[in-house]
C-alpha cells in the first residue's frame, strides 16, 4: 500500500491516534472527540473525526470492531477503534522527529 511508505502522520491524525491510545478500550467517535476537546481545547467537527478514523483504518493504522447494540443508541451498534502496531510505530517516529526538532529550542520558544 502506497500510504505505508508515507511515514509522516498528519498533525490531526496524530491527535486522533493519541486520543485513541489514551482512551484504551473506550475509543469510539464520540469519546475521541470529547478526549480531544478535553486535552487540547479543540472543538473538532464530527465529520472530520469520522473521516479521519475511516482513513486511518483504510491506511492500516486502526482496526475497528462493532460492539453489541445498546438500547440508549436506539438499538444501534457502536464502532470501537484500536491502534495497530504500525500506528504505534508511526507515532514513535513522529515523536522522535519532533523531539529532535525541539531539542535546543527551549531557550527560544520557552517551556510549554
Amino acid at each position: 500500500m502506497s500510504s505505508a511508505d508515507v511515514s509522516a502522520l498528519g498533525e490531526f491524525e496524530q491527535v486522533v491516534l493519541l486520543s485513541i491510545l489514551r482512551l484504551g478500550d473506550d475509543a469510539y467517535a464520540v469519546s475521541v472527540r470529547d478526549e480531544i476537546l478535553r486535552c487540547t481545547g479543540r472543538d473538532v467537527s464530527r465529520g472530520s473525526i469520522y473521516i479521519t478514523l475511516d482513513r486511518l483504518e483504510t491506511k492500516g493504522y486502526l482496526r475497528s470492531r462493532l460492539a453489541d447494540p445498546t438500547p440508549e443508541r436506539g438499538g444501534r451498534a457502536k464502532r470501537y477503534y484500536a491502534l495497530r502496531p504500525r500506528a504505534v510505530e508511526a507515532l514513535r517516529d513522529s515523536r522522535r522527529a519532533l523531539v529532535a526538532l525541539w531539542r535546543g529550542l527551549e531557550g527560544v520558544l520557552g517551556h510549554a
Partner: peptide, 27 residues
C-alpha cells in the same frame, strides 16, 4: 445541523475517493 455537516463532509470525502489521499487530516 450535525446531519447536514456530516453529509457535506462525507460528500467531499467521497469526491476524492479512489485517489491516494494526502496524509493530512486538517479540518
Amino acid at each position: 445541523g450535525q446531519a447536514a455537516r456530516l453529509a457535506w463532509a462525507f460528500r467531499w470525502e467521497r469526491a476524492t475517493r479512489g485517489r491516494g489521499l494526502p496524509p493530512i487530516g486538517d479540518e
